Computed example of a mutant assay.
Amino acid sequence: MSDTRQPQRFAPTKEDIETLALQALNRLPDPFAAHLSNVILFVEDFADEQVLKEMEIDDPFGLTGLYTGRPVGHEAQTGDTPPTVHLFRRPLLDEWVETGVALDALITHVVVHEIGHHFGLSDLDMHVLEDMVAP
């Protein structure tokens, strides 16, 4: 007797999201790639309550990514923490399901947007860069 059930599918894990984010980062051209060695990537299910409060976001599903740190070209200060990009898995997965955009394209979009803050790029510049690294 053959098994005709569909294979069980699971939501992408934090590790899956991280893999897609690293692939997007690896597609960034020079001179961008040369300035990313000190940027730390975190993947978490949601932003913590303090971050949401500071950003005046009521719905934890309303934030898919966040850049923190001093942008390239700004003088470092004593006590600065390394620049970080946070990706928030659950809001990303909700947006993925709601929009039907391919997950790798969505992750690339958010990664480029957050890295754009690291470089002080305008929204237009971020869109141009995103087109250059699209999966």
Results as ranks from 00 to 15, higher is better:
Val51Thr: 15
Val128Glu: 11
Lys53Asn: 13
Pro31Gly: 09
Glu130Phe: 05
Leu103Ile: 10
Asp58Ile: 09
Pro60His: 10
Asp131Glu: 11
Asp94Trp: 08
Thr68Pro: 00
Ser122Glu: 07
Met1Gln: 08
Glu54Thr: 13
Pro7Phe: 01
Glu95Ser: 09
Leu52Tyr: 09
His74Met: 13
Asp80Cys: 07
His118Leu: 04
Glu15Met: 09
Phe46Trp: 12
Gln6Arg: 12
His118Glu: 07
Thr78Phe: 09
Thr13His: 04
Glu75Asp: 10
Gln77Gly: 02
Gly120His: 07
Leu87His: 02
Gly116Gln: 08
Glu56Val: 10
Gln50Ala: 14
Leu92Arg: 00
Leu121Lys: 03
Leu66Lys: 08
Glu49Ala: 15
Pro91Tyr: 03
Asn26Ile: 00
Ala47Ile: 07
Ile40Arg: 15
Ser2Trp: 09
Thr13Gln: 07
Gln6Thr: 11
Gly69Asn: 09
Ala33Pro: 00
Ser37Thr: 13
Lys14Asn: 11
Leu52Met: 13
Glu44Lys: 14
Leu20Pro: 00
Asp104Lys: 11
Phe46Ser: 02
Leu87Ala: 02
Phe42Tyr: 14
Val51Pro: 00
Ser37Trp: 08
Ala21Lys: 03
Ile107Cys: 04
Leu20Ser: 00
Gln8Ser: 12
Leu63Ala: 09
Leu25Asn: 01
Asp125Asn: 09
Ser2Arg: 09
Leu106Trp: 01
Phe32Glu: 00
Arg70Cys: 07
Leu52Ala: 09
Thr84Cys: 14
Asp123Arg: 15
Leu129Val: 05
Ile115Val: 15
Gly79Ile: 05
Val72Thr: 06
Asp48Trp: 03
His86Ile: 00
Phe61Lys: 03
Ser37Val: 10
His113Trp: 04
Glu44Met: 07
Pro31Asn: 10
Glu56Phe: 07
Phe10Val: 12
Leu66Asn: 05
Ile57Thr: 09
Arg70Thr: 15
Pro135Asn: 03
His127Ala: 10
Val85Ser: 02
Glu49Ile: 12
Pro83Ile: 03
Ser37Ile: 04
Gln50Arg: 13
Thr84Met: 10
His117Asp: 04
Asp45His: 12
Pro82Arg: 09
Asn38Val: 12
Glu130Trp: 01
Leu129Ala: 02
His35Met: 12
His74Phe: 12
Thr99Gln: 06
Leu103Met: 08
Phe42Gln: 10
Glu44Gln: 13
Phe46Thr: 02
Glu95Gln: 14
Gly100Trp: 05
Pro71Leu: 06
Lys53Ala: 15
Leu25Cys: 11
Glu49Ser: 14
Lys53Leu: 13
Asn38Thr: 14
Thr13Ser: 15
Arg90Phe: 03
Leu52Gly: 07
Ala134Asp: 10
Gln77Trp: 06
Gly65Glu: 02
His35Cys: 08
Glu114Pro: 02
Thr68Asn: 04
Asp80Asn: 13
Pro91Thr: 06
His117Pro: 04
Ile57Arg: 11
Ala76Tyr: 05
Arg27Trp: 04
Ala105Cys: 10
Ala134Ile: 11
Thr4Asn: 14
Asp80Gln: 07
Ile40Leu: 13
Pro82His: 05
